[in-house]
């Protein structure tokens, strides 16, 4: 099958803060890849790199063999039609109904007649179980439903790859279960490649075929869930088991505690 996405030795800094220091990873085609890591380690930023919204200072990002940094604006937009992204907030357009939101990419990128677009919209909404919500406005949806509606929109153009940015964050157990099932089902039935960025270890482990663990500006572990569980890396084990202290320290780096407290006296 090969790899759909490859990152090679990517360096990136936001202002003074270094985000990546030599990030190297690959996303296998046709599988669900989970990207795990502590908050703030740049998981979401990774998706922006794959989507070509950010350009690496050093290193390269390839999607389907194309170097994203070398594409012209038009080629970049063409390439983006082959992928889609589910944002954390759903990012539905507030002024359009749910059905019009799903129809949006179709109207933008195809010349299909309206009745066919309506049919496709119904099919996409049905696949996420929201056909009954087509005429609602996004503000009338719960968080979980908004995410499902956004999912329907992101698969409207039948992309090759869907990127999920924290799809489980802030969801109740039922909608979490629904989303896990949807991601898994859609990946199989539509033959997608999925990237799930999350820190919900249990949910991601249950569906992912391939796992990437990020920490300290690098990839610290890559492989199947089983391989990672057996991994020798302390860091990976700490994260997968959710221990408070370990290689990722509980305390932020600071001066010695007693010195900080007594500093003014001495």
């Amino acid at each position: 099958m090969g790899n759909l996405v490859e990152l090679d030795n990517v360096h990136f800094a936001r202002g003074e803060r270094l985000i990546y220091e030599g990030l190297t990873l690959h996303i296998p085609r046709g599988k669900i890849t989970g990207v795990l890591g502590p908050s703030g380690c740049g998981k979401t930023t990774l998706l922006r790199f794959i989507g070509g919204q950010l350009i690496a200072e050093k290193g390269s990002v390839h999607f389907a063999g194309k170097n994203m940094a070398k594409l012209s604006r038009r080629e970049l937009y063409e390439t983006r039609k082959r992928m889609s992204m589910l944002f954390q907030s759903g990012a539905l357009f507030a002024e359009l109904t749910v059905a019009e939101n799903v129809a949006f990419p179709l109207r933008e990128h195809t010349k299909l007649p309206d009745n066919i677009i309506q049919t496709i919209v119904k099919m996409k909404l049905e696949s996420v179980g929201l056909r009954g919500a087509g005429q609602l406005m996004p503000s009338e949806l719960s968080g979980g439903m908004a995410r499902r509606a956004a999912l329907a929109r992101s698969i409207a153009l039948d992309p090759e790859m869907v990127m999920y940015d924290e799809p489980f964050a802030g969801q109740d157990p039922i909608s979490m279960g629904v989303l896990v099932k949807l991601i898994d089902e859609l990946n199989k039935t539509l033959g997608l490649t999925s990237i799930v960025v999350s820190h919900d270890v249990k949910e991601v482990m249950s569906i992912a075929d391939h796992l990437i663990v990020m920490a300290n500006k690098k990839v610290v572990g890559q492989g199947t869930p089983q391989e990672l569980r057996d991994s020798g890396s302390e860091l990976v084990r700490q994260f997968l088991k959710g221990e408070a202290d370990g290689p990722v320290p509980f305390h932020l780096p600071a001066t010695a505690y007693h010195q900080d407290l007594l500093g003014e006296l001495s």
């Binding site: 919204q53 983006r80 039609k81 992204m85 944002f87 990012a91």
Partner: peptide, 11 residues
């Protein structure tokens, strides 16, 4: 609310 990013990702 990431609507602008989302537009970009929808090409």
């Amino acid at each position: 609310t990431e609507q602008l990013s989302s537009l970009e990702m929808m090409a």
